[in-house]
Computed example of a mutant assay.
Amino acid sequence: MRINEADPLESLRRRSSEKWGTFPADVLPMFVAEMDFPLAPEIKAALQEAIELGDTGYVNPRDTRAAAAFAEFAQDAWGWSPQVHRMGVTTDVSVVIVESLRRLIPADAGVVITPPVYPPFFDLVREAGGVVVQVPLLDDGMGYTLDLGGIDEALSAGARGVLLCNPHNPVGLVHSREQLAELSTIVDRHGGFVISDEIHAPLTHSGHTFTPYLTVSDQARDHGIAAESGSKAFNLTGLKTAFFVAGSDRMTKLITALPEEVTFRAGLLGLIATRAGFTHGRIWLQATIAAIEHNITVLEEQLAATLPAVRLRRPDASYLAWLDLSALAWGDDPAQFALSRARVALSNGPSFGPQGIGHARMNLACAPDTIIEAVTRLARAIE
């Protein structure tokens, strides 16, 4: 299979996005979730055509082609056919989460999150007026799973619902259908809800099967909302497009009752790019996943050779590596040490929750040589 190659470093440093505009040129930026790969040619062509046409106005709420493209992709990739009339468009998955929570919880209601988890989850619950209830992932030393017993207890104690990360950022866990089905039973028993952030799902690795939450049971369809986007899969975060997806009349009414401004805040270029990616960019996506899988192997080999004390458990999805650096004694937040001493910018582990102490997250959507250089710098920092 073809493997995508990253853009040259000199081209990347001309970018003005967060990844490339935050640090000086002597720092290797491997923190925020942006890719170094060039855009899929089909997306680039679609955007160029839009620019030539001056097609840069407001989104058209009646244009469902991007939603239909996602639905067709979901059917082909996961055997799931979300219905376009049960979908809504907005800016990004964070807006899907906040706007859904605002309508699903009263003020000061508890919402379960499962750290270590995407840091904005803590803030999004608070932004919606809720209270964060932490039920950490279970870790048996070999792999992670949801603590279903802990979630059951949290809901029994008054939490109103669950904000699920599926696949789970930062550990790359693809939740099993069995666990998700059991989760749906627990949530249903308590009259709760699940908002499932599935932004990394299109980047599920070979040999693993992603399960959309809304497919696991009738209960899940009744009480669930999925947050979907092509932004991570096709590196489109700056173009601002995501989807609400429901599977029941109850949740569909929640989506259709949203103020129209929630839709108009989406980016038209994002809709155009999303449609092109899910329709015509699938070969590019496969090549990107192949490159990521290769890069994980490169990281494993480099760590084994030069930093054997650093622990990495191979992720099931996305391009993020969760590194246990605690054996290096670089403090609670080893990313700070890595930045100051090795000039490698990693995501700060403690921001993912208390379970992130001694950890850092590394972005592997880059050239293999970047990974080799990063590990080399980290090893030199020890010396």
Rank of each mutant, 00 (worst) to 15 (best):
residue 1 M to H: 05
residue 3 I to Y: 08
residue 5 E to I: 11
residue 7 D to H: 09
residue 7 D to N: 09
residue 11 S to I: 11
residue 18 E to A: 14
residue 25 A to D: 12
residue 27 V to N: 02
residue 30 M to C: 13
residue 33 A to C: 02
residue 34 E to S: 05
residue 35 M to K: 12
residue 41 P to M: 10
residue 47 L to N: 03
residue 53 L to D: 02
residue 56 T to W: 05
residue 59 V to W: 02
residue 62 R to D: 04
residue 66 A to N: 00
residue 66 A to I: 00
residue 66 A to D: 01
residue 69 A to M: 00
residue 70 F to E: 00
residue 79 G to W: 03
residue 80 W to L: 04
residue 84 V to D: 01
residue 85 H to S: 10
residue 92 D to R: 14
residue 92 D to C: 14
residue 99 E to V: 00
residue 100 S to Q: 01
residue 103 R to N: 12
residue 103 R to G: 11
residue 103 R to K: 13
residue 107 A to S: 15
residue 108 D to E: 14
residue 109 A to I: 15
residue 111 V to F: 15
residue 114 T to G: 01
residue 115 P to T: 03
residue 119 P to R: 12
residue 119 P to E: 12
residue 129 G to Q: 15
residue 131 V to E: 14
residue 131 V to H: 14
residue 131 V to D: 10
residue 134 Q to W: 04
residue 135 V to Q: 06
residue 140 D to W: 11
residue 141 G to D: 08
residue 143 G to M: 12
residue 147 D to R: 10
residue 156 S to W: 08
residue 157 A to C: 10
residue 163 L to A: 04
residue 169 N to S: 00
residue 170 P to N: 11
residue 170 P to W: 13
residue 171 V to P: 03
residue 172 G to W: 02
residue 172 G to S: 03
residue 172 G to N: 01
residue 179 Q to V: 02
residue 182 E to V: 07
residue 186 I to F: 12
residue 187 V to F: 00
residue 190 H to R: 05
residue 190 H to I: 02
residue 194 V to W: 05
residue 194 V to H: 05
residue 203 L to Q: 01
residue 205 H to L: 05
residue 206 S to D: 06
residue 207 G to V: 00
residue 209 T to H: 11
residue 209 T to A: 09
residue 211 T to I: 08
residue 214 L to S: 08
residue 215 T to Q: 09
residue 232 K to V: 04
residue 233 A to R: 09
residue 237 T to M: 07
residue 240 K to S: 12
residue 246 A to P: 14
residue 248 S to E: 11
residue 249 D to I: 07
residue 256 T to K: 13
residue 257 A to M: 00
residue 261 E to F: 00
residue 262 V to S: 00
residue 265 R to L: 05
residue 266 A to T: 05
residue 270 G to E: 07
residue 271 L to E: 09
residue 271 L to V: 08
residue 275 R to C: 00
residue 277 G to W: 03
residue 279 T to R: 06
residue 283 I to S: 12
residue 285 L to E: 08
residue 292 I to S: 06
residue 298 V to G: 06
residue 303 L to R: 02
residue 305 A to T: 03
residue 316 D to S: 07
residue 317 A to V: 03
residue 318 S to Y: 06
residue 325 L to T: 07
residue 327 A to Q: 15
residue 330 W to K: 09
residue 330 W to F: 14
residue 336 Q to T: 15
residue 338 A to P: 11
residue 338 A to D: 10
residue 339 L to R: 15
residue 346 L to S: 14
residue 350 P to N: 07
residue 351 S to D: 02
residue 355 Q to E: 12
residue 356 G to H: 00
residue 362 M to S: 09
residue 368 P to I: 07
residue 372 I to D: 06
residue 374 A to L: 03
residue 375 V to L: 03
residue 379 A to P: 07
residue 379 A to D: 05
residue 383 E to Q: 15
